[in-house]
Design a protein around this nucleic acid. Structure first.
Lengths: 336, 336
DNA sequence: CCGATTCGTCGAATCGGTTCGACCGAGGGA
DNA sequence: TCCCTCGGTCGAACCGATTCGACGAATCGG
């Protein structure tokens, strides 16, 4: 089932079979026909390893994901799905590499074993070893997320700073004066997780700009934490009338805590966030939120990566998106 | 940066470098030391394609997932994560292949291009082309899920029939006489999706065994559909006092419809299901459910696959699990 | 009508590893 | 002392593709 077998059965040389398949040199119609017939009959496919060895590229990209121990959020899942999808459209395969935790052998294999033509890295920290490692290795890569100083890399990212700013302005426009930010988990923020820091910065700035009173808290990524966190918030700051959140996994808990506290949304209390559209729509009532365009970001990341693979010396590019807030059912005027 | 370069700098032949690395022939301590020093200095890693070509195996497994267009459920995500994790522990890489839809080129590449040593296939249908294709190809594979007649394959699966039977018995024990099954989507069931069919069969049997009145409906995989579906159910069958469900994504909608209908859970109405633990615990109130042991199933699938790769002629094995129902807060005695 | 292209094909080299057979020297048993 | 074994190493073959140089035949321009 290799190219030699095909050549023998078609009565030609191995190189002719290769040329018939790649079209890189002319082959007579009759010969080509004969070769293709044999290939079809035997179900032959070129051996990927042999081809990769000779061509020096694998037609595979790596996708570096957080380790399985940390559950993927709905948003992250959206990135994975869209990257896989976009790669499939470009006839690329995707090799998964959990990084962080104990799985750094996997990351090393992917980076250094010439297994992939390029890498997409998710969940980038403000200071990120993996980015440094990739830069040193010279392997083309694109970040979904960016480091503190991303000048030397290509990336796509959500503009959390602007996004949360918009959320705050939206609430301020509705008359809210006392608002809270429910951020991602304290561990993530402490570890230098970019979205956490940027959301905080955007919140602080917008609150100052509008002369509001703001309180920011961290919250683990699940509904229980969201509930506990909101209950504490309401107890310590009864004057609050609105919450902005970047923690989609906690949102259901926020709702629940408000309901138990007798605050009806959006009549007594407003919530606005950043979340996957699917997620926002499935909450009750549907969450007013900036819808994360995961499909667009993932596809763009693949595009950028293909560009870097084609020309590793080209200038770096990036995409920073700030999708508009979709008005759903969780924000309303502040009660005076 | 190839083995020849290492050999030259260490002053030995290429084969000696290879033996020093693999240990398949003795190498003197001094020589080995020298070689390792050079390797360390240059950061050399064997080229994966060359090794795969010569050895005839890739140290990579394929994971065939549903196409991105169909959102992964929390449970499916759990399988993916656990497979990736288990594979990483065995120093295997995972190649993702979305199958179905328009991405069958990806599936073909994986199966036929000798890119992987074996494949794990998720979301198997009662009649499944991919399984037939894999059997014909001779590539080792393991199903997460199984066909109607899975004798010729290795697989792991959840015993939905038993599981739903247990749910029904649990409800019957609590005195419920009129119960409904909220199944997966009509499209999935029509397409021969095993869990849908087996859940239905288990429901029907248990209902008959206990002399209950049961009604089974299909429901799309999201909260909105769950709500609509439950509202219809309550309108058409006001006598219902309990729901059993295998549709974790719809559960939040079921809750909401019940709340809007003024049925308090578990006082007026009971719900029991099959879901990821994480999911069940994050609902309010926490769902009484059989917790899907995704980690165990995924790890076992990888084990089975490694077994088949090691000995493709060995007898097929499988694992059918029916985890016990975790009592949480959504079932109570029927009000008489 | 002849030299220069072009077409169609072949053989051989190559990619970077692993592995087999062979060789040399040292040590052990008879 | 001789022969055999074994440790340690080398050179060459091989895995299955792509690609380069070469070569005969057909075609084209002048």
């Amino acid at each position: 089932m290799n190219i030699g077998e095909i050549a023998k059965r078609a009565g030609v040389s191995r190189s002719t079979v290769s040329y018939a398949l790649t079209g890189r040199r002319p082959v007579s119609p009759e010969t080509k026909q004969r070769i293709l017939a044999v290939i079809d009959e035997l179900g032959y496919r070129p051996n990927a390893a042999a081809r990769a060895l000779k061509e020096g590229r694998t037609r595979t990209i790596g996708l570096v994901i957080p380790p399985a121990s940390t559950r993927l959020t709905d948003m992250q899942l959206g990135f994975v799905a869209s990257v896989v999808d976009a790669a499939a459209r470009a006839d690329l395969d995707v090799l998964l590499s959990p990084s962080g935790g104990e799985h750094d052998r996997s990351f090393e294999r992917v980076v250094t074993g010439q297994r992939v033509d390029g890498v997409i890295v998710m969940e980038i920290r403000l200071e990120d070893d993996r980015v440094a490692r990739l830069m040193a290795s010279g392997l083309p890569f694109v970040g979904i997320g960016r480091t503190r100083d991303p000048a030397g890399m290509s990336w796509v990212d959500l503009d959390y700073e602007t996004l949360i700013g918009r959320c705050v302005h939206h609430l301020a426009d509705l008359g809210h004066r006392d608002i809270a930010l429910v951020n991602r988990s304290a561990e993530l923020v402490a570890a230098g997780y970019g979205p956490g820091h940027r959301a905080r910065a955007g919140f602080d700035r917008a609150v100052a700009d509008r002369g509001l009173r703001g309180v920011a808290v961290c919250c683990a990524d699940d509904a229980q934490a969201g509930q506990a966190c909101t209950e504490r918030l309401l107890a310590e700051h009864p004057e609050l009338t609105a919450i902005a959140t970047v923690n989609e996994a906690a949102a259901a808990g926020v709702y629940h805590a408000l309901a138990r506290a007798g605050r009806e949304v959006p009549r007594d209390f407003s919530i606005v966030g950043v979340a996957a559209r699917h997620w926002a729509e499935n909450l009750h009532p549907p969450l007013t939120a900036a819808d994360v365009p995961a499909v667009e970001l993932g596809a763009h990341a693949v595009d950028l990566l293909l560009g870097r693979i084609a020309d590793p010396a080209a200038a770096h590019r990036h995409l920073l998106v700030a999708p508009p807030i979709s008005l759903r059912a969780t924000t309303g005027p502040a009660r005076s």
